[in-house]
Design a protein around this nucleic acid. Structure first.
Lengths: 194, 194
DNA sequence: CGTTCAGTTGACTAAGGTCAATTCCCGTGG
DNA sequence: CCACGGGAATTGACCTTAGTCAACTGAACG
């Protein structure tokens, strides 16, 4: 089973025939380190599935400062999901942190599948629910935990290895909502206290 | 058209017959000021639709401190959505800030409708997408904006009237991620600077 | 080698948190 | 109708912690 088919299947059982309807519209795309998959302001809506590589998603402030909000690894779906569902220009940019191989398809394809078959509609629901649950957890952590606690949680997360090994520290910092300098101090503090 | 039917219809067109399948499982419930609709740890999953009243949703810390994460008004759906979709005990409590009239139904009802009809599955998708978009916006604001900015955004929001008029300030404060004392100072600062 | 950029460290600033006292508001009961 | 009680909001003094700015180190890469 194709890894993307497998991922989709884990949300909503999709048989081979239905899967082909998506797969026939997929293309491969390789993005070099430092290049973008999706750019802020863009209207073309693509969904990507990471075969190999690492990406980061960020918002830009007026002054050009970048605020990282997410990291993606192998077997993750990447896209400016909000801009797809609201049909608005993307507010985010998604950049490859290493050379990244993607399987991509246009959002309009998935949208048509939503119309065609109930199992695809269910897939859309499950994905959105999964996303909402993740966002809620993240939001609550930002409200309830101190930066230091959030860093500790990250150290205990299942993605720990991947994140710490493959993501530069200053991106992790603003993913946690703090400055790189501050994260450096937190790490210093933690290493001394035990 | 029943106000709940109307709300559902705005997400996914649902005809009278389909609507009745939900409506026949609805009950009315009135909750007195200060009483809870949903309690932390609870497993029974109900969805409510506010006919009249105001509610607030909060998480509890170990030390008993409450962190308010959302407010609900007339025509809003209220529930521990995450616990419904993950089928886990609720982490949140939803409390009536005034005497509140609800129309309620069990999540299992909606879940069966998801199985029965595609239009209901679509409704589920749209609701989840709507929720995800709202959560993302909120999360980004917590990452990018200073508390003062978040308060200013609240002052410009469409819900401004409702929130400021009907919600005690100390709940607004921790909705913004700050202490009531801090919010008081921010208000003071803003009133002096113009 | 030197250039570059990530990460650390130090000195200082700013802003929110904490604790405590005070005032304000509002509903209740005498 | 007024006095009282209690919670909400404000204010002041002080503390803690993250932000800012700048200097320095060190590793990566041409």
């Amino acid at each position: 089973m194709h890894p993307l088919h497998q991922l989709i299947h884990s949300f909503s059982p999709i048989n081979e025939k239905s899967w082909q309807q998506l797969f026939e519209h997929c293309e491969e795309l390789t993005i070099a380190k430092g290049k973008n998959f999706i750019r802020e302001g863009e209207k073309e809506k693509y969904i990507g599935f990471i075969m190999e590589g690492t990406m980061r998603q960020y918002y830009s402030r007026d002054n050009g400062e970048e605020i990282t909000t997410y990291f993606y690894f192998e077997n993750n779906l990447v896209s400016s999901y909000i801009s797809c569902i609201n049909n608005t220009p993307s507010q985010i940019t998604i950049e490859a942190l290493e050379k990244t191989k993607l399987l991509i398809f246009n959002y309009s394809v998935i949208n048509e599948l939503y119309n065609k078959e109930k199992v695809w509609e269910r897939f859309g629901r499950k994905i959105a629910e999964y996303l909402a649950a993740g966002l809620e957890e993240r939001m609550v952590s930002l409200l309830m935990d101190k930066p230091e606690d959030r860093y500790k949680k990250l150290l205990n997360s299942t993605n720990k290895q991947k994140i710490l090994a493959r993501i530069p520290q200053h991106y992790i910092a603003n993913y946690l909502g703090i400055t790189p300098i501050s994260l450096s101090r937190i790490r210093n503090r933690l290493s001394k206290n035990k």
